[in-house]
Design a protein around this nucleic acid. Sequence first.
DNA 1: GTGGTCTAGACCACT
DNA 2: GTGGTCTAGACCACC
Lengths: 130, 130, 130, 130
Amino acid sequence: MFLHIQFDSETPIYQQVKNQIIRGIALGELSLGESLPSVRQLASDIGINLHTVNKVYNQLKLEGWVVIHRKSGVMVNPDLKANKSPDYLAGLDTLLKNITAEAYLNGVSREEFIDFIQKNYDSYKIREEK
Amino acid sequence: MFLHIQFDSETPIYQQVKNQIIRGIALGELSLGESLPSVRQLASDIGINLHTVNKVYNQLKLEGWVVIHRKSGVMVNPDLKANKSPDYLAGLDTLLKNITAEAYLNGVSREEFIDFIQKNYDSYKIREEK
Amino acid sequence: MFLHIQFDSETPIYQQVKNQIIRGIALGELSLGESLPSVRQLASDIGINLHTVNKVYNQLKLEGWVVIHRKSGVMVNPDLKANKSPDYLAGLDTLLKNITAEAYLNGVSREEFIDFIQKNYDSYKIREEK
Amino acid sequence: MFLHIQFDSETPIYQQVKNQIIRGIALGELSLGESLPSVRQLASDIGINLHTVNKVYNQLKLEGWVVIHRKSGVMVNPDLKANKSPDYLAGLDTLLKNITAEAYLNGVSREEFIDFIQKNYDSYKIREEK
DNA sequence: GTGGTCTAGACCACT
DNA sequence: GTGGTCTAGACCACC
């Protein structure tokens, strides 16, 4: 698996795992419908607690990123749908407001910032089939 | 004061206050050298505990946003210096990677995203004197 | 633990604890990567409040002396980096100017003073591994 | 007068004034028996409160650095005597222990440190007469 | 009046 | 069990 966890980070481990799985989908490293490692598997791979992985998978399911079948385990939701809900957008809004403000004050120019966004978007491509 | 706190939010109160003060500086609502309300004042204004505000002011001081005078209290650092440290940039990097990935998957187009950044940057303007 | 706190001292408790931990690292009594007692543990050991220890650990973290892991608690930063920043040196400068001036006037000879520094430096030795 | 106060410093104003006067004596900028400005004078010169200057002079007197006469005002004690009391030495001891430990960890070499002490001592010379 | 420090008790998030 | 956060009340140092 492609996960890199920083155990000394401020962001909780479960959050890091979640982020990286979502990012993996956006990058096409994980294609829609692809199955993810089992809870036990992933936990021992990364060296974290079972509960933590469980929490990740449950939240990913609640947010619609993955589907969980009793038998076949966890797989990336083959039928992802964009969720531009007002709540999501509002959250994104305040989040970006804070980030850009601090970046601006720290001397990150508008061009640098946008360039960075561009590069990220360039690398995103959902992979449909497996 | 211009602070709006969401007490039911997941982000801790002290974090919200911090963010809004930093954003206030970027927007020019707080000019460099302007003095902020006293710990007790702000605490009672917002309706939170004195220690929470204290924590905010201390962190802002440690990060160089404000200066704390013995007598006159707290004021916006009159000569802010940009801090494009590698650590800061690394943090910004992973943060934006996660945000953009999720935004992409949620159907926020590249144009929308960048447009939003533009608008934010347009509204930033450090105000030098009071 | 090797901490001795003077409760009647002018220097605040949290400062004393901080100093002694830093000194412990310099002396090699605490090796890099070694884990420190938990907040509650240390607090009850010394007989002070949990929050006071918390403050110490947080400041030590901000200044880069220790790392705080989500699970395993607090440990001495395994790769300390020297921080000869201009600000630090400026602070050291004025501090030493005042101390030496007073020592001189109090009859502490240059030799005594330097000898004392020598002895201290002799006893410092960072211990790498545990 | 030769005083430079940093109002945004962590060290209290009265402490800064005290330090600089003591240092002035060590450097010979103030000779033994020389009279110091009146409380009012000094306060308005620096732009600080009367009480603050008063506190300074009182402490300096208590510690034997100055003498205060009703009429002639405050003057540097013409008959300074070294005070290598155990208490003073003990305080100096722990203070230097902490400073050197931090300096060592911050990459200040023994030579640099001692060199700095040397330079300071070189500049000290009590001036006897006025 | 200002901020700084310490204590205390409670709840929560994370692992 | 770990640290993180918030509240509360008290005392002190400084100006």
